[in-house]
Amino acid sequence: MTVSYSAGEGRESFDGAKAALFIGPRLLVIRRDDRPGIPHPGALDFPGGGREERETPEQTLAREMREEVGLEMGRAEMLWRQSFDGATRPGLVWFFVLRMGAGAEAEIRFGDEGQGWALMTPEAFLAAPDAIPALQARLGLWQAL
Results as ranks from 00 to 15, higher is better:
M1A: 15
V3M: 02
S4Y: 07
Y5V: 01
S6N: 05
G8Y: 01
F14D: 03
F14K: 07
D15A: 09
A17W: 06
F22K: 09
R31W: 04
R32W: 00
D33G: 12
P36M: 00
P36W: 00
P39L: 05
P41N: 08
L44D: 12
D45K: 06
F46K: 05
F46N: 02
G48T: 12
G49A: 02
G49Q: 03
G50Q: 09
E58Q: 07
E58L: 08
Q59V: 05
L61E: 05
R63F: 14
R63I: 15
E67A: 15
G70E: 13
G70V: 13
G70C: 11
L71S: 11
E72C: 10
A76L: 11
W80M: 09
R81F: 07
R89V: 10
P90N: 11
M100A: 06
E105S: 12
E107R: 10
I108T: 03
G114T: 09
G114F: 07
A118Y: 07
L119Q: 00
M120I: 12
P122L: 01
P122N: 02
A124E: 13
F125V: 04
A127C: 07
A127E: 05
P129W: 04
P129L: 03
D130Y: 09
A131F: 02
L141D: 10
A144T: 10
